[in-house]
Write a protein that binds this DNA or RNA. Sequence first.
DNA 1: AACAATGTTCAGTC
DNA 2: GGACTGAACATTGT
Length: 278
Amino acid sequence: MPKLPEVESARAVVEATALGRRIADVDDSDTWECRPHAPGEIGEALVGRRLTAARRRGKSMWCDTSGTGRSATPGPALGLHLGMSGRILVTDADGRLTEGGDYLGRGVAGAGRQADRNPVWVRFALVFEDGGTLRLFDKRRLGRVRLDPEVDALGPDVLDVRVGEFRELVGRGRAPVKARLLDQSVLAGVGNLLADETLWQAGIDPRRRVDELDDDDLSRLHRALRRATRAAIARGGVHTGEVVPHRGRGGHCPRCGAEMACATVGGRTTWWCPVEQV
DNA sequence: AACAATGTTCAGTC
DNA sequence: GGACTGAACATTGT
């Protein structure tokens, strides 16, 4: 379930395994995943080019592309949004995974490592001249592939904002604090689970309006967000959080044992500890 | 078998 | 008119 940490892992894999390989063919036939492009449009723009960089901002990821043999002018960027269930696999000429080619990265034996590789879930693919591939598996089909994605509308990446800027961005307005954390135009990269984990660690009720938070609240929130994000990246996913596994009916706060509360906040299912989060 | 879940987008409301 | 809310979207697991 890709959130920022998974996207960062995928980006690192693409950077390590897919750059510099000449694109010989493109499967962009899935018109939903590749909307609003027509079939063949992405292929036409990319064949003959190479990926030159893999970038990420929040949960958005994209690759820069090189010129072709004829022209040195760089090609369009290739946006690869993983949505909710997207995974990227890179293979070599023999069809084997290139070293590190699983988005989970090294050393993480996540559940579904094999399960999510059903061929029918390949929604987009690059075929390299050397016979290898870069494939986007996306079970739930909420991902998106597009040329020159709009990334300017996104706020700064979670890990790039320091306390001062964080207070300024998050403290503005009067939305519930969780809704603000989820707003990608304010801060890029926080998903539903990471928001819950962060608020639990900071001891803040997700329904609190941001204009009711003081500097100390915002500082704690900032620290908790950085900590939760880095931990999730290091461990290979948001699901490794401290409180995330206790979301769900009958769950209890892993610190105080109180029964977790549940409501819709910011349009998303939200779980929190009604005792410690105030 | 109906429904919850997930992130983004878009239409709508205040 | 900016800030905010809620539903739609596709698909699958429960």
